Amino acid sequence: MTIQFNHTVVHAVDRAESARFFTDLFGLPDAVPFGPFLAVHLANDCSIDFAQAGGEVAPQHYAFLVSEEEFDHLHGRIQELGLTHWADPRQQGVNQINHNDGGRGVYFCDPSGHFLEAITVPYGGWPQR
């Protein structure tokens, strides 16, 4: 099968603020204007396209698989900014990380209330090779 995920649109209260928040925390290049969107490009030819919401934003969940080094950067920025974060999706383990599947993970919210997750090992662990 050759199907690949290409992009998703994330509605934001302030698309520029949300895009800056995301690129800063994840250590990514600045967002690029693309029509009505601010596109943040990820390593696997995928993008997150921030769109200005015309009203209230319904919070969504977005999870990202990151390297150990990227996790260090991300968690460091979360701590520097004093952002509340959690070890699990039930928002328990306040200001802690988890060590699920032999990796590390953290949950936190973006400026629009979306629930973001970063993990260093996929759920269930790495496939046997």
Rank of each mutant, 00 (worst) to 15 (best):
Q4M: 08
M1H: 15
R90A: 15
P29L: 01
Y107W: 15
R77K: 15
Q60R: 10
G125F: 07
N95P: 07
Q4V: 12
G105Q: 06
R129D: 13
R104L: 09
H75R: 12
T8K: 01
D72C: 08
E69T: 14
E70M: 14
N95M: 09
G105A: 10
A12N: 01
L116G: 06
E80C: 08
R104M: 05
S18F: 03
D110K: 00
D30G: 07
G54R: 09
L83P: 06
G76F: 11
P89M: 15
M1L: 15
F64H: 07
S18E: 14
G35K: 07
T84F: 12
E68I: 10
E56P: 04
A31G: 08
L38R: 03
H114M: 01
A53L: 02
V32R: 12
Y107N: 00
G125E: 04
G124E: 09
M1S: 15
M1F: 13
E80K: 14
L83S: 04
D45V: 04
G102W: 10
A118Y: 01
G93P: 08
E17V: 14
T23V: 12
D110P: 04
L83M: 12
A31P: 04
S47T: 06
L38D: 09
P36Q: 08
S18W: 09
A16L: 10
H41A: 09
C109D: 11
P29N: 02
Q60N: 13
A31L: 03
C109Q: 14
I97F: 02
P36M: 02
G55P: 02
A31W: 06
G105I: 01
V66T: 09
L25E: 05
G54N: 10
G82K: 08
V57H: 01
R104F: 07
H11P: 06
F64K: 03
G54C: 02
N95V: 04
A63R: 06
A43L: 12
L28T: 01
V10I: 15
C46S: 11
L25W: 07
V9I: 15
G103W: 08
Q96I: 06
V57I: 05
L38Y: 05
H7N: 13
A39L: 02
F71H: 05
T8S: 09
N98A: 11
V106M: 03
F71P: 04
Q96Y: 11
C109N: 14
N6D: 15
E117I: 02
D30I: 07
M1N: 12
W126E: 08
D72N: 14
H7Y: 15
T2E: 14
V94R: 15
F5L: 07
P33M: 04
P29K: 00
Q91W: 10
H61T: 03
D101A: 14
F64T: 04
V57C: 03
N44P: 02
G113N: 00
Q79T: 11
N98L: 10
F50P: 00
I48S: 01
P89S: 14
P36D: 05
D24W: 08
L38H: 03
P36V: 07
Q91F: 13
V9R: 04
E56N: 11
R90C: 13
Q79V: 15
Q60C: 09
H85N: 10
W126M: 06
E17S: 12
W126C: 02
F115P: 01
D49M: 12
H41P: 00
H99E: 13
T2G: 15
D88A: 12
R77M: 13
T8Y: 00
H73M: 03
S112T: 04
G102P: 05
A19R: 03
V121A: 10
F26S: 02
H7E: 04
